[in-house]
């Protein structure tokens, strides 16, 4: 089972996380309809690395962006997304 290093919680098992979508398929509400639908309904789906948005749903519930290899499941990079807690 993949081990995902949550920037808030440290290394945790994949079962605590849920996959949301790829970074490039996020639909902005001010996008023109055809642009939005293209983002929603097409994916590069590479046999390799992709930028993905995940959530630590059964943990801190924070959102993360992973760069992850879809062949090897290696996680190349993780960064937090969204509202950051102030220092």
């Amino acid at each position: 089972m993949m081990l995902i290093h949550c920037p808030h919680c440290g290394p945790r098992a994949q079962e605590e996380f849920t996959y949301e979508r790829t970074r490039d398929s996020v639909v902005q509400l001010d996008q023109a309809p055809d642009v939005a639908m293209a983002a929603l309904y097409s994916r590069t789906n590479p046999r390799g690395e992709e930028n993905e948005i995940w959530r630590h749903t059964l943990g801190c519930r924070g959102w993360l962006e992973l760069r992850r290899d879809r062949m090897s499941h290696a996680i190349v990079a993780v960064r937090p997304l969204g509202v950051q807690v102030l220092p």
Binding site: E20, V26, Q28, R55, T57, R61, W63, L81, G82, V83
Partner: peptide
């Protein structure tokens, strides 16, 4: 709950 968190945090 997931949807509102998504909108608030990512969008």
């Amino acid at each position: 709950a997931q949807h509102l968190s998504w909108l608030r945090n990512v969008m």
